[in-house]
Write a protein that binds this DNA or RNA. Structure first.
Lengths: 190, 190
DNA sequence: CTGCCTATCTATAATGA
DNA sequence: TTCATTATAGATAGGCA
């Protein structure tokens, strides 16, 4: 309870000073917004918080304060801010796009890698399927399943049309030779 | 006597509005000087009086206000700009990195594509090298040259070691069959 | 207008959770 | 440290000179 009359002097106790600052800062903000609304005028306040030397706080808002201040030094800050925001979102879009493209390429790359491995295997027999290659078998079988689904789909929809790459149909053979896995089959989305 | 609770809305009566403005303006000034002294901080307010559109009033003093405002404009703006610049360059770095990775992946992808084509060609003969495939011949030969260089390099440095993929050595045959180009040869950088 | 008055409203210092 | 409380200091709307 405010028993003590405020003595208009610097508050030495840090805790008290901080508390007082917070309360009075809020009060100030309220007063400013009130006079602004009641009297239909422009007004603003700028306060440098203690312990945060370079981060002033403003009322009624930063843009509002900037608007008021720029009135008398003739600079429109809102333009700047807006411009910067646009630039930033543009850059973020570019990043997202690149990342997506990257993802696609990685997948495509993986697919081709597996196909190459298949080709190598079919050309030289199982002696090349050593411990270094065994790690590819899962993907091998997965892509084979995918290709099989694709082929069957094409055969059903366009029975006379055969565009499936040769290597992919070889992949089917390879799987038929006993390298199937329990990978779940996923339909290819065209 | 303040019998009526203040309703936070524009005061339509000019006389009342003016009176309120004057009182509240003084109160505001007092509050600002108080918080300034009590908490040892910099603060200022700028108020545009009604009927005097282009002549704002300042506290704690015009020079004081200008000092605070210039701090506000100068320091906070430059900080912001700096920060934004940092953020922007960080984002640009990410973009560059992504683009570079993209480029590498594209190249790798191309290489594998060509290898696949080689494989297909070797397996089924030249009847598959139709007009759709002819466009790949340049890259085909380019990568073959690259692979040849790589192989020769390895043979020179490690004569007993043979790790070159089979398809690549097949590529050498393919080129020997007469598909060479005038592509400049680039040494592979390990 | 300009101040002053005063009943009431508002802000807030000190305290406790 | 941050909220909620509360009693008191401070601010102020409307009236009046």
């Amino acid at each position: 309870m405010t028993r003590a009359k405020i003595e208009l002097a610097y508050i030495t106790d840090p805790g008290k000073r901080k508390a007082t600052f917070k309360k009075r800062k809020n009060g100030l903000m309220k007063k400013i917004s009130e006079i602004t609304v009641l009297c239909g005028i422009d007004a603003c306040a700028v306060v440098y918080s203690p312990d945060v030397p370079n981060k002033p706080e403003f009322w009624p808002s930063e843009s509002g304060a900037r608007s008021v201040i720029s009135k008398f030094n003739g600079v429109s800050e809102s333009e700047k801010t807006k411009k910067m925001f646009c630039q930033e979102s543009f850059i973020r879009q570019r990043i997202d796009k690149s990342q997506e493209q990257l993802k696609k390429l990685k997948n495509e790359n993986r697919k081709r890698e597996i196909s190459l491995l298949m080709c190598e295997y079919l050309t030289h027999g199982s002696n090349n399927l050593d411990s270094n290659n065994i790690n590819y078998l899962k993907d091998f079988s997965f892509f084979t399943d995918q290709n099989l689904d694709e082929i069957r789909n094409k055969v059903t929809v366009h029975p006379a049309q055969e565009e499936t790459p040769v290597i992919y149909s070889r992949g089917e053979q390879a799987q038929a030779q006993g390298h199937g896995t329990n990978f779940s089959r996923k339909r290819k989305l065209n």
